[in-house]
Design a protein around this nucleic acid. Structure first.
Lengths: 355, 355
DNA sequence: ATGAAAGCGCTAACAA
DNA sequence: TTGTTAGCGCTTTCAT
């Protein structure tokens, strides 16, 4: 004599629906799945659909997943969810994936490659249908992992030199070109660069873009560069100090991203340097709120929301057709001029002796 | 004659492990599960563990889930992942849940209640073990849903008046008390409030906290308030305009959150009002970067990371013991004084005629 | 302490 | 076109 359980109501199963419609479970299954619906008489299909409706049937994705090996689950791996650059990427991607019927798992996986791999295999065990990776660095083991496991994956924001996977990134070189052109048009001649870590494509490509743009203006000799250890305000400040110590003559600094530019601001404050009167600064990303800081930051805007959207779309395509040719999408950034850039102050005659 | 598939390597199943260890699958299952391991001879358990190790066995959570009804999946619902307030909550909660073996699904569910309910039932179908809700407003249908479905859930950041579920929030009234005390100590007497939407506990409680604090100082008559339609810079500006138009005498404004305070800044800029010389401003949340804006914002800091952590911990407890008594955790905020607050300018004799 | 057997809810190969 | 059957990989009675 089992105690009956009045609280937990029974799950509505496919069998229940089938019984009510007077057909076999497999027929009900076919009727319910739009793809296989044509295998079933329209009249029967309608009966099944009605029965499902009446009973409030919701297919069990877990059971389906066990059976089919697919899950309608997509995972997005970010190195740091607190970094606000990723927020619009996530919302763009989630939005798109949700409309395609995917449930999105956002995993904050940190920067430790072993940890990342662990988390990725955990998700594989859950049979996620694909990954969007916002984490990759040069020769990333995660990419190797996805290739090995033969699981659909696309890169977003950061890519690889060898494009082993499809990707959506901003045109980092072009962005730097824009930044440099803008400064040169303001008649700057000695422009420093605070680069991001070289193992990230953003760090590497933006640095290259900076170098090329300066070369194009014949300013190669006047383009000192310091590489920040990470994309953080703290490391940005660190690099800025090194840059200013070694090249006090710079009249402008191009930072590889906004966080680094904020670090530059910190150093300006610390040393009483006026921006843009004494030194101009350009950031990269147009992170939220950089229009509110003082001075409002001139920067390169990337449409991260669109980036997420396109990555999601690409992933969907790869999931549907794993042999799809790789696509490397490059988004056009735009220059946003605010108040951190201005023409350089005319060098006072006694400038040299001043220090 | 089936074509053999040299690419897709076979999944290592429990049966495989059992065979290799020379036991039955059920024994292997018992040996692998720490909880049931004691039902098995230590020597046998060891053999199974070794076999699993050698084969690189990973239990299939999908199959386990189908069988047990549990999933080791936890979902966090946020209204807007782009709002940077949620980032530290998410990372705090994810971190904690991950160490407990949960995989976290972050769902960006928007503000539409029907959409939220749809997404929640979708996740229920996936058999998530529990929800963390960062979305709730007054009498939220999502809370009713969780109660009905009898699924573990805890609230974070925003709570309900009737505490139908456990929650972790900041002490919103205390925060406002701190803000008002600070301004009063600077000798402000006429202080306005830009409130958040009343259907959110943060909006309602902060407003009440403001009113009570002003009353405590005997300033009830001098505490005009405007309610913003949403927590956004835009609505903050809107409310600020209304406040300044109706009460031009205010010397300080307490905003219900930082985003609203930024809107106030926008209006100051638009009207040429100097902050803090003419009007002081206090925010709430200590969102990232508000120390960089001009002037750096005095605000109430909430430890959102800790908030997420504690919500996760609470959720774990509720999942383990659904009959656990409700806990309503209140975190202490702290006042962060920066440069948006100062003593009010001494009213010039001709102030009144000036306008 | 271990094995046998059933079944979670679904889908798909096969048969009719 | 529909039903039969088997099984995805696991856990959990039940029997031994």
């Amino acid at each position: 004599m089992k105690p009956l359980d009045p609280i937990k109501k029974r799950r509505v199963t496919l069998k229940l629906v089938a019984d009510r419609a007077g057909v076999h479970a497999s027929t009900a299954s076919r009727a319910l799945n739009p793809v296989t619906r044509s295998m079933v008489l329209p009249s029967v299909a309608q009966k099944v659909l009605d029965a499902a409706q009446e009973l409030g049937y919701h297919p069990d994705p877990v059971a389906a997943s066990l059976r089919t090996g697919r899950s309608k689950l997509a995972a997005i791996l970010v190195p740091d969810i607190s970094n606000s650059v990723f927020a619009p990427i996530l919302s763009g991607a989630s939005e798109r994936l949700a409309t395609e019927g995917y449930t999105v798992i956002v995993a904050d996986v940190g920067s430790d490659k072993d940890k990342q791999l662990n988390i990725a295999s955990g998700l594989m065990a859950r049979r996620v249908d694909g990954f969007i990776l916002a984490t990759v660095s040069k020769d990333d083991p995660l990419v190797a992992f996805c290739l090995e496991q033969n699981i659909p994956a696309v890169l977003v924001n950061r890519a690889e030199a060898q494009s082993r996977l499809s990707s959506v990134v901003s045109d980092d070189e072009l962005g730097m070109q824009m930044a440099v052109d803008h400064l040169v048009s303001l008649t700057h001649k000695i422009i420093g660069h605070i680069a991001g870590p070289a193992q990230h494509s953003t760090g590497y490509l933006r640095r290259r873009g900076f170098g090329r743009a300066m070369a194009r203006h014949g300013l190669t000799e006047n383009s000192p560069c310091q590489i920040a250890k990470s994309y953080s305000r703290h490391e940005g400040a660190h690099a800025a100090r090194r840059l200013l110590d070694s090249h006090p003559q710079v009249t402008a600094i191009v930072a590889a991203n906004d966080l680094l530019a904020l670090g530059v601001y910190d150093v300006f404050r610390e040393r009483g340097i006026n921006c843009p009167a004494e030194i101009s600064v350009v950031g990269h990303n147009d992170m939220q709120l950089v229009d509110m800081i003082e001075p409002p930051l001139t920067t390169i805007r990337i449409d991260h929301h669109e980036m997420g959207r396109q990555a999601a779309e690409l992933l969907r395509q790869v999931i549907e057709n794993p042999d799809k040719a790789k696509h490397n999408v490059t988004l056009q950034p735009i220059l946003i001029v605010r108040s951190s850039t201005a023409a350089p102050r005319k060098p006072k005659p006694q400038t040299r002796s001043e220090r």
